[in-house]
Computed example of a mutant assay.
Amino acid sequence: MAQFTIKDLARKLGVSPSTVSRALSDHPDISTATKKRVVEAAEKYNYRPNQLAQSLQKQQSTTIGVIVPEIRHDFFSTAISGIEEVAYQSGYTIMVCQSDETLSREVLNTQALASHRVAGLIIAISTETTEYAHLDSLIRQGIPLVQFDRVVEELSTSKVVIDDYRAAYEAVTHLAESGYRRIGHLAGQEGISLNRNRYLGYRDALRDAGLAFEEKFHIHGGYREEDGRAGAEAYLALDELPEAILAINDPVAVGAFVRFKQAGVRIPDEVALVGFSDTPAAALIEPALTTVFQPAFEMGRTAAKLLLRQFDAEEKSFEPETVILDTELRVRGSSRRKERAA
């Protein structure tokens, strides 16, 4: 006699397989009454969870694919922990891949996860991802997809983001109000919405503070410490330094910090710095880094919840959601008020 599967149990109860899975995992989103019904039915039909049997029955695993630019980045490793927590509570496991900030590897990762018949995919795109045929292909294949942090705005998927424009605007406004006048931006590469929105927030904050936008202080690069060092090197080659810099993220800010220190540039007396993410390194350097806190763990949790919600939805009734989480500017020593000569 064939083993009774989760799909069979769901059909008997008139609910989705993921609801059964979460009820058996005592998930807080499932009502006590539903949990009781599921547990009683599982006992009645002698149901025992079997992931391989589920995979064969559904032609789909109970695995969620996750693609991030790099796992070593504290922001993404923390987000992965949030995804894993929600997935585990709902009877799913996760398979994590990293794109290493390249489009080609991101494409290979999506193909590999699709071939493994993952239940769905959660992704933060690479710095090179300015075209997205590979993600559009997943959607056309019917594979549920949720984007977080770095997203392709044109794709009709659920998304978890922050208000990058407002966060950058508030950071630059803080610098202007602290007495800094020549404010630069170590930006990400052009073409990605996150980079564009942070740049627009930077530019508009300068305008509203009555400060000039100087092209020489706006430097494009990547997301790693070496990009911050390269950006600082470019500033050091100029005839004058910016008085303050908004970096695209904390690793870039820390890389710039290290190179400036090596060159004898005093922070914040000669150059103030502000980052993004609030990684552990931000509080460890001296002076500690002013940075925009992003709720990485909650971003991961929310992305996983949106994916599970999509599993439960009928295909025709599914409507993508965009969740915007709050940020907080955490002011530390790297941007203390500038003292000017009388």
Rank of each mutant, 00 (worst) to 15 (best):
L325H: 02
E240T: 15
R336F: 11
Q147N: 05
D136G: 11
Y235Q: 02
A212Q: 08
P242K: 00
R37K: 06
H220K: 14
P280I: 09
G333N: 04
G300V: 13
L273K: 07
V38A: 07
Q111A: 13
V252H: 03
E190K: 12
A283F: 00
L135A: 02
T110C: 13
G142K: 12
M95H: 08
A296L: 03
R259L: 07
Y180E: 03
E270V: 09
I123W: 07
V20L: 00
A23D: 06
A341F: 13
T5M: 01
I183Y: 05
K36M: 01
G188K: 04
L9H: 08
K36H: 00
A342F: 08
R309N: 15
V38Q: 03
K12F: 10
V252A: 03
A230H: 09
T78E: 14
I123H: 10
G300H: 14
T157Q: 00
K216L: 11
S90K: 06
G120K: 14
A112T: 15
E270H: 06
Y235L: 05
E84L: 01
Q294G: 03
G300M: 12
D26K: 04
Q310E: 14
V86D: 01
V86S: 04
V68N: 09
Q189Y: 02
F318K: 02
F213K: 02
R117G: 12
I324E: 00
R166S: 06
I83T: 06
D250M: 04
M95K: 08
G222S: 01
T93G: 14
D163R: 12
S18G: 05
Y223L: 10
A124R: 07
P69E: 12
D250C: 01
L155F: 03
I125C: 04
T110F: 04
E128R: 07
S16F: 05
Q3S: 15
L56T: 09
Q98L: 00
N46A: 15
S61M: 03
R182L: 11
L325R: 03
P280G: 06
A342P: 15
T62K: 15
G201H: 01
Q189W: 03
D312F: 06
E153T: 13
K305G: 08
C97H: 07
K261D: 08
R336H: 11
E177L: 04
E240N: 11
G91Y: 01
L13P: 01
A168N: 12
Q98A: 03
A209N: 13
Q98T: 07
R150F: 00
D26R: 06
E70D: 11
D8S: 10
A303K: 09
N50F: 02
M299E: 15
H218R: 12
E153L: 07
I6S: 13
T279N: 13
P49L: 00
R332T: 14
I143L: 02
E314C: 06
I245T: 08
A244I: 02
E40K: 11
R72C: 02
E40W: 01
R150T: 00
G14S: 05
L135I: 00
T93Y: 10
F293R: 13
A168T: 09
L155T: 08
A209L: 10
D163Q: 13
E314V: 09
A167E: 11
A237T: 03
G275A: 05
P287I: 01
R150E: 06
Y169G: 08
I83M: 09
